[in-house]
Design a protein around this nucleic acid. Structure first.
Lengths: 136, 136
DNA sequence: TCCTACGATGGACAGAGTCCAAGTCAAGAA
DNA sequence: TTCTTGACTTGGACTCTGTCCATCGTAGGA
């Protein structure tokens, strides 16, 4: 994660304690926190940090391509720090647990031109759903 | 669409004018309305219909498997009446237009057992993103 | 050490969805 | 046809996410 802080500093990010804490909270594999969860964990280390700052920082990290916004069925967006290794998601329909997965194949190639309606298709997002071991 | 009304009646649905209007609004291909849009269109025919009723009815239709909730990046959920023909979605990253598409291939088979983490995987959802002809 | 522009704060606000108590009415019974 | 009743609808209050903004604080260069 310190390399994330390095990269950010290299891009001219002003390094504040708030931004550092948010970046540190978003560390590890299979991390998919909501903004509120990020705020709660950040507040453990920096009690005065505000919600607005967490939202601002997450938005900047997404804009910089350092964090991915994961589309969820539920209400709150989730943030995935695993932005530099292409992957898809496996979601438990019951408890909402998310795992990063790496399917084989190339779904982009599976969409025939006739099914593209003139769109310039640039991205595919695959979400697998099912029950996790604990919920099954 | 009248067959939808028939199916619903067959399942013991009490047929009210509100439910009929919501079901009629959700008719056709490539229909992906938000709850608010459904409410607006329903209100053209039945001005007193309430938001709560639209939400209730949409929720019931989803629970019955007659309508699919489409995950979107934006804020509001969208509802897709094309529930009886498996398909995926192609979304314009700029204007949000959604088309139903039918890719070849079977993404479920593309997820190796080692990547399933013990989940019982039952569903895959594929979202293609790009620019529609109007936005390109 | 001092300056200042960038970042943080918190409170107001907005959009989407849920909940609930009270009133209404579809459809089966008589 | 009328009656009855429980399922359905209503509208307003409420919650949850997220955004905006004026003001204050501070990182980092001079």
């Amino acid at each position: 994660m310190s390399d994330l802080l390095e990269r950010l500093r290299g891009r001219g990010w002003r390094m504040t304690s708030q931004r550092r804490v948010v970046a540190e909270v978003l560390d590890g594999d299979h991390v998919h926190l909501t903004a509120d969860e990020v705020h709660a964990r950040a507040a453990e280390r920096l009690p005065e940090i505000s919600r607005a700052t967490v939202y601002n920082t997450l938005g900047e990290l997404v804009a910089l391509g350092e964090v991915i916004e994961v589309p969820t069925d539920g209400r709150a967006r989730r943030y995935d720090p695993n932005a530099h290794h292409p992957h898809q998601h496996l979601v438990c329909s019951n408890c909402g647990t998310i795992r990063d997965v790496h399917p084989t194949g190339n779904p982009l190639a599976d969409l025939p031109a006739a099914e593209r309606f003139g769109f310039t298709v640039s991205e595919v997002e695959v979400t697998y759903r099912g029950l996790c071991p604990a919920c099954a």
